[in-house]
Design a protein around this nucleic acid. Sequence first.
DNA 1: AAAAAGTCTTAATCTAGATTAATGCCTGAG
DNA 2: CTCAGGCATTAATCTAGATTAAGACTTTTT
Lengths: 157, 157
Amino acid sequence: MIREIKIVKGQFLQKEGEYNTKGYIVKSGLLRSYSIDAKGKEHIFMFAPENWIIADTTPPHLPSELYIDALEDTLAIVFKKGEEDNPDVQKLFSRLNVLQKRIIMLMSASSIERYEHFIETYPNIIQRVPQRMIASYLGITPEALSKVKGEQKKKGK
Amino acid sequence: MIREIKIVKGQFLQKEGEYNTKGYIVKSGLLRSYSIDAKGKEHIFMFAPENWIIADTTPPHLPSELYIDALEDTLAIVFKKGEEDNPDVQKLFSRLNVLQKRIIMLMSASSIERYEHFIETYPNIIQRVPQRMIASYLGITPEALSKVKGEQKKKGK
DNA sequence: AAAAAGTCTTAATCTAGATTAATGCCTGAG
DNA sequence: CTCAGGCATTAATCTAGATTAAGACTTTTT
């Protein structure tokens, strides 16, 4: 089902934590998606002007990570994310979500938080690649990673 | 056409600047993609262990941004990126490329470089949103962006 | 039109992580 | 077997950008 909606400046289409299955194609105006970190700071994930698609790619059974609201009065088409049953499209969506998470991490988490998130998410990879490559993936130097691991051990992990 | 290939540890599947239309599904082993910045530093974009897909999402008519090589002896299936003519899939690919570029930027560029890249890529958005939101998108504070713009002016831009 | 709230800039200080450098450990090539 | 090159760790110093704070403008609310 395709539906066109009107959103006024400042109005929300989605808030963090909601279970949301919708995405939006902007016809006119401007939408934005963003996250809010532990310190209350906003991190804009994406601007969506005319003809852009905007959606939180978190899978529908998990709480969303992003807020979506309007920076200008906007006309948009709503689509249901779940209604797509092409398996290729499904795979691409989960890939998009990996990158979405990564960007949010790079913008809002410290090097130690990024490291801890990495070992939770990819425990098997740690065994298989040298530390300097983990550091490179996290966007820090091997020296900084070495320091981080020391601090982590002190905390008794 | 689907083809299975064997790659030995250290072997390259793609280098930056090549025009590449292939992607890979890893059956066993471990591949990785990465970029090299102006200072010669490597930034790992993705690890691909068993059952992961790895590909540079740069459109086929543009030079690739990533190197892809093997961290372990690997068995993978090659697929042609261009052969997919589903328009939804095409759109998702271009979206993936936006995020790929963004991640590489966040990992390897200074705040001033990120700002300059932003104004080149989204000149129309600058007019429409407050500076503090541009800063938030770039992953810096509004104060830092203000400083950056000052330096940019000095350079006579 | 006055008050309140948000925005941009400049400047002083602080800090996470970069850089540089030295040491010891592994590992694989000959 | 050995030795040269890659890898991890630790420590000293440096720096890009964060934080904090203050002032001038602009926009919105009442």
